[in-house]
Computed example of a mutant assay.
Amino acid sequence: MERDGLTACATSFIQRLQLHPYIFSQFQRVMNDYSTDKLNVPALVSQLDTLFQFHPDFLTEYKIFLPLQLRPTLPSPPQSPKKKGPSLIVLKPYIVFMNKVQKRFADEWGVILEYLDTIRKLTQAKLSNKEAYNAIMIIFGKENQDLIDEFEFLLLGRNGIRKEKKKNSMEDKKKNSMEDEMFELDMNLSRRKTAEITAKELMYSLQQHEDQLINIDIYFSAVSLGYLRKIYKEEGSSIITRLRDDPTTVLPKILKKLESEEKVLIKKWRHIHQKKKNPCKLRV
């Protein structure tokens, strides 16, 4: 039996949300607080509105899962007359699954990145369901067949790998191009945030231990150093050298640069979302 409109919409929503690791992790935290009754629905809405403030598509789509009285301007999803209260419970299996993936591969971030990249390609129709399933088998490995089976059930449909639909129109190509740009921007936002947190941690350590020699490679990952090189362009190599030689002097300048870069990235996000008109529509 085909999934109903609400479940199909939840799958699409979670697939795309997983492409934004930082936002998804915060979303998981908020939803966990809701599921354990630490947050009521109005408090949940307030936190999600804040989390998605720079993501108009998510800001609109998550409200589909709210109680009817809190989304008067949105279409009503199909519901059983016996079911009362929020429909947010439909999102829980997807959140639990991503938690499992993150815990299982906590020391293998490359696996999680490959998983997210596969989700991105699946969402953009660059991979068929069968191709995505085969890719996940390789990424997770046979020893994690339970995760592979759960991935197939949740993200490829209840009946396993479904019939494929080819997308060849110019509209789909434009959409895929925009999704690529959005993915790249979100990755840069995530890398920027990680670099900022690391820089602040290093600055604090320097303040506590003024005479201690600091190895920046213990603090900054290769990805974060690569991001600094990228935003400084031709000055990238010299800024890394100066960071190694005199972190106390260079760190404040790097933090200022990262703050400036955040404004640029957010401006680009807003520009893209002004062009994007693809709200999740339920099938009645």
Rank of each mutant, 00 (worst) to 15 (best):
R270A: 10
V111T: 15
F24Q: 02
S238V: 07
V41G: 01
K63D: 00
L155M: 13
I240T: 02
A10K: 05
F153S: 04
D246H: 08
I148F: 05
D57G: 00
K275P: 06
L243N: 12
E150W: 14
W269K: 15
P42I: 01
H273W: 11
F27N: 06
L70D: 12
M203P: 03
S190R: 13
G5L: 07
T36E: 10
K63N: 00
I266R: 09
Y133P: 06
L66H: 09
V264P: 00
K83A: 15
D117R: 03
R120W: 11
I112V: 11
V264M: 11
L155F: 15
L113M: 14
I272W: 05
A10D: 07
K103S: 09
N278D: 02
R192V: 04
K142N: 10
K121G: 07
Y62T: 02
A106S: 08
R120L: 15
G110P: 00
L282V: 08
A125K: 05
R3L: 15
Q28G: 07
S177T: 09
I214R: 14
A199H: 01
I148M: 10
F58M: 00
Q53N: 14
E150I: 10
K163N: 14
T123E: 03
R29Q: 05
N40Q: 07
F153L: 06
A125Y: 13
F52C: 00
D117N: 03
I95L: 03
D57R: 02
A135E: 04
K253W: 12
K267W: 06
E262T: 04
L44S: 02
F97L: 07
K175Y: 10
M182I: 06
L225H: 02
I197N: 14
I254N: 10
N188Q: 14
K256I: 03
F97N: 03
R283I: 11
I23A: 13
E235L: 04
V223R: 14
I161V: 12
D37V: 08
K103I: 01
A10M: 08
Y115L: 15
